[in-house]
Amino acid sequence: MNMKWLLISLLLLGLVSPSVEAEQSKRLGPWEVHYNAFNSTLLRPEMAQQYNLERNAYVATLNIAVLAANEAGKPAQQVSVSGYTMNPLSMQSRLEFQEVIEGDAVYYLSQAEFTANEVLRFFITIEDENGNSQELRFSQEFWVN
């Protein structure tokens, strides 16, 4: 793990309580995309307020950071992030992302509603300033807590 990602990870861990699952990552073209999704009730109240995020048993929080895959020590990339979720009934909900910049760390936050014990499929498009884009897809089950 390079030093820049370590910084991002530490900043993100400060957003949530200690019981949050570890982040996941995927190599997408020129990027290493780190992401995690968790129940928003795990957000510390002061961090939720700072980033204008809702804390609700039926709301998931999504966090994405994009790093250059081939450049060790390269800071997080500023990109355009958009996407949607799909529930088991194939109903789509658009995700609205906010960019957060803290020093060299750049990450993108969004929230999505879910029902009790529901699997959401995430479809996230990441695009750079040159129009190069990649799609991140993953599924996650959410529980009300």
Rank of each mutant, 00 (worst) to 15 (best):
M1T: 12
M1S: 13
N2W: 03
N2P: 12
M3T: 12
K4E: 10
L6Y: 09
L7Y: 14
L7H: 15
S9R: 05
L10E: 15
L12I: 08
G14I: 04
L15R: 06
P18H: 10
S19E: 15
V20G: 05
A22W: 13
A22F: 10
A22I: 09
E23D: 14
E23K: 07
R27E: 13
R27Q: 12
L28A: 03
L28E: 08
G29H: 08
W31D: 00
W31I: 04
E32C: 11
H34L: 08
Y35T: 08
Y35H: 06
A37I: 07
N39H: 07
P45H: 03
E46C: 03
Q49T: 11
N52R: 07
E54Y: 02
R55W: 01
A57K: 04
Y58A: 15
Y58D: 12
L62H: 01
L62D: 00
N63V: 13
I64W: 00
A65V: 00
V66N: 03
E71M: 06
A72E: 13
A76R: 07
Q78V: 08
V79R: 05
G83N: 00
T85I: 10
M86R: 11
N87A: 01
P88K: 09
L89C: 09
L89I: 10
L89R: 13
Q92H: 08
Q92G: 03
E96F: 11
F97V: 06
Q98W: 09
I101G: 08
G103R: 02
G103D: 07
L109T: 02
L109S: 03
Q111K: 02
N117C: 12
V119S: 14
I126M: 11
D128Q: 02
E135K: 12
L136M: 08
Q140I: 07
Q140P: 08
Q140W: 02
